[in-house]
């Protein structure tokens, strides 16, 4: 996937919050909005948005997912850029919307545009805004580790987030073993196959514990719920944050009020 569009004078961004972040981590949305505005973007929030349809699609209900994909394309097509804090939803759109809507004459062109314009937050910072965070610093020294969420694979991302984190002052980055091994979330998989999912998140939290970091950065709401839930079950003190929350802290952004 090539995202060919170059930023205009003042990039116009539609925030795609995703259903999980909307319901569980709205502060991430506030952080993303304010950070993008600091970097000179205009941020809009299309209020009709719900969900990209990933859970429906992944569970095999493709006719229903196709309807949701059409809805999503209709809502987001007018915008220059679409930015989402969740890699997994971004990958759903870019990897699987072509399968759902490819060949549907009325939808194909719009779908392609939406695919080309949809970016995961870190990807947008890196590829479009070419953001440099070295001017910012956390108020206090913090040890930070990073979980490579699976959908980075589909998006062709590697260590962009780690590079951004390392630019922030007072971030002491600690590498994690098996950092790119899935945490075991997998959407409904976590509920349908709890034993397997549980073994996976057990292993993930073992690796996290070994880093002894204070903060785990994880850029996907699903993984955050899963890993955070296991850390809490095991009584481990680590905090799980989205990179936007760490950035907001470093940039002195207040997330409790607009």
């Amino acid at each position: 996937m090539t995202n060919a569009t170059q930023p205009s004078h003042k990039p116009q961004v539609a925030l795609f919050i995703t259903c999980l972040s909307d319901q569980f981590f709205p502060r991430v949305g506030v952080a993303v909005t304010k950070i993008l505005e600091r970097f000179g973007c205009t941020v809009e929030f299309p209020a009709a948005q719900t969900c990209c349809g990933q859970p429906i699609f992944n569970n095999g209900f493709h006719a229903e997912a196709r309807q949701l994909a059409k809805r999503h394309v209709e809502i987001f097509e007018p915008y220059e850029f679409i930015v989402t804090p969740s890699g997994s939803c971004c990958a759903m759109i870019r990897e699987y919307y072509p399968q759902l809507l490819g060949g549907e004459a009325a939808w194909e062109a719009g779908m392609r545009r939406v695919c080309q314009r949809t970016y995961e937050f870190v990807e947008f910072l890196h590829k479009v805004l070419k953001a440099d965070l070295s001017a910012f610093a956390l108020p206090q020294r913090q040890t930070v580790t990073y979980h490579y969420t699976c959908h980075q694979r589909g998006l062709g991302l590697s260590d962009e987030a780690v590079r951004l984190l390392n630019q922030i002052g007072n971030v002491q980055f600690v590498a994690m073993e098996r950092a790119d091994q899935c945490c075991g979330f997998g959407g409904t998989f976590a509920v349908k196959y709890p034993v397997i999912s549980g073994a996976m998140v057990q292993d993930k939290t073992d690796c996290i514990a070994k880093t002894a970091a204070q903060t785990l950065v994880c850029n996907d709401a699903g993984c955050t719920m899963n890993i955070g839930g296991m850390l809490h079950r095991r009584g481990m003190p680590m905090r799980v944050k989205h990179i936007a929350e760490v950035m907001a802290e470093a940039m002195g952004i207040d997330l409790d009020a607009w």
């Binding site: 319901q23 569980f24 976590a190 509920v191 196959y193 296991m230 079950r233």
Partner: peptide, 11 residues
């Protein structure tokens, strides 16, 4: 299945 293995954050 979720809480059989891990806790769930409140929304």
């Amino acid at each position: 299945g979720w809480t059989a293995q891990r806790d769930m954050p409140a929304a």
